[in-house]
Structures are given as structure tokens and as C-alpha cells.
Design a protein around this nucleic acid. Sequence first.
DNA 1: ATAAACCTGAGTAAAATAGTCAAGTATCAT
DNA 2: ATGATACTTGACTATTTTACTCAGGTTTAT
Lengths: 141, 141
Amino acid sequence: MKLTSKGRYAVMALADLARFDNINPVSLRDISLRQGISLDYLEQIFSKLRKKEIVQSVRGIQGGYILNKKAKEIKLNNIFDAVDEKVKTVKCKKESKKGCNGKLTKCLTHNLWDELENHINNFFNEKSLEDLVKDNSEKRI
Amino acid sequence: MKLTSKGRYAVMALADLARFDNINPVSLRDISLRQGISLDYLEQIFSKLRKKEIVQSVRGIQGGYILNKKAKEIKLNNIFDAVDEKVKTVKCKKESKKGCNGKLTKCLTHNLWDELENHINNFFNEKSLEDLVKDNSEKRI
DNA sequence: ATAAACCTGAGTAAAATAGTCAAGTATCAT
DNA sequence: ATGATACTTGACTATTTTACTCAGGTTTAT
Ligand code: FES
Ligand code: FES
């Protein structure tokens, strides 16, 4: 059970963006340099974030990205969703009537994994970008 | 973020074992048939479970495996540990002084991932095999 | 005009996963 | 004794996923 780079970098990059987007758009190049993430990879990630309306782009020179909502309103959940980092614990298709064994009953562990999935998603639903930035600025004092 | 087969099958197999180990050892062949898990794969898994003293083996005809502790005392945590299904959310080495960026400070998101890791592990620490079996026998009534 | 920066899609190397395969050894029922 | 059952071990491999890279655009401030 591990976090993938895509999810990790998306959150990292947005945390960076949230800290610096006060006045001007933030360029991916800057984020790339500050966070040590490949520029090409960032572009992939931000393309998805833009499509899900988490960020807005500003083209041209001096351009970059800005948050499309308040940091408080951007939950980790939204970010993960945008970059397709999904929490998947059950093996069966949830909406299907069939269990992972192909039978009509759910397997012995289905409920357990389902609980786990909820447990993890609760965490992601509660944490916002703001929490992240706050947490870090507090630490810097 | 997903669960791997190894972890999933380990828990599935042990849940099966916990339900049937009243009198006789349970053979992997039976578990394989009931749960639809490849016998060869089960052998890999149970080898690890035995080394971590979660199950005991009984060789020869009519042999199989039995739980080495009460179902109540076997936490998901122990199982996952045994089969090397580890929860890994931070990118850096935890004990290292360096962050994932190579710098001496931890990255913006380090604390977040650490919290997440704890959050997930709490779940695994609380759930026991007994919970699983109970949950399922209740459902069957 | 030109350089900074966004935008898009394809392609690929490496790692992890999810097994399979082969060749044993121990024990028990008969 | 002996054959069948079932555990034991280690190597091997196909598939999938991940984590990028690369190449070629388009937009816009200066
Ligand atoms: S995970 Fe849903 S039935 Fe097994
Ligand atoms: S994850 Fe620990 S420093 Fe980035």
C-alpha cells in the first residue's frame, strides 16, 4: 500500500503554489526548481489539475498557474481525484452484484476492505491545502 | 494507493483458516479451492506467515496449518507485516535527517504523509482476525 | 520578433506485482 | 514398507504499473 509519485507530486506542487500565488501566477519552472520535480512531469500533472478546475492557467510570458479556489476549499480528495490517484482496496467492482471470487456473495474480507477504504478517504476529505500551508508556516516560526 | 494481492490473499486465507481450524489443521488445498487462490501462491504466503509465527504447520497426510495464537490476538497489522505488505507514504527514509529533496529540512508534505501513515496503521492495529470472522458469521444469520 | 511559459500526445525504461514451475521432504494411513 | 498427501524452498517469468522523457506545438508580454 503506497502512495505514488503522481499523487505525492500533485500535492507537493499545489502546496508550493498555495504558498506563492499571492500576487503573480507561479510558473511550473519555479515549482520544478523548488521542489525538485521534473518539469515535463509537472506539466502532465497540471494539465489534469486544470481540467478538474483546481488551478487556472495564465499563458504567455510571466504566466503560470493560480489556484482556482480558496486553499481551504481544496481537499486532498479533490487533488487525488484529479490526478487519478485512487484508493482501491476491494478487488471486486463495487457496483457489481458479484464478489471478487465470481460468486454472488461478497467474499469474507469485502467488508473489511470497504471499511478501510472509507477510513482512508475520510482522511483525504478532511485535509485541505490550507491545513498544509498553515502547518508549515507554523513550523517556520 | 492500493492493496496488493499478497496482503489481500493473506488476510483472506487466514480468515478462512480461522473459520475452519476448530478441530483439524486446514490444508492449503482446501483454502485454495474455497477462496480461489492459486496453491503455489498460497504456499509462498504461508511460508512467511509461519516464519512470523502466525500459523503453525502440521506436515504429512491430514496435515495443514493452524493458527498459532487466538484469532483475537492476531491483528491485521501482524499479518501485513509478515507478508511484507507495508504502508509507505513518505518518500524519504524516516530515520534519516534528510528530506526527500535531499535537503536537511523535511519537505512541505512530509508531516501530512506521516499523519496518513499513522491513520492507516491505526486501522490495522485495531482490527483482529476475530473481528473478521465475527462480522461474517453475524451476516450469515 | 522573440523568449517565456503553457499545452499535448506519444513513447519507453525500469520497477513491482502476481504469479508459475520444479524439485524436493516429512508424515501418516494402510 | 509404501504411496499419497501436504508442507518446503527457491528460482524463474509474464504482465502491469509507474515514472518518467521527448518532440513538437500554441499563446502572450515585452
Ligand atoms: S473484495 Fe469484494 S467480494 Fe472480495
Ligand atoms: S516525504 Fe519526508 S521529506 Fe518529503
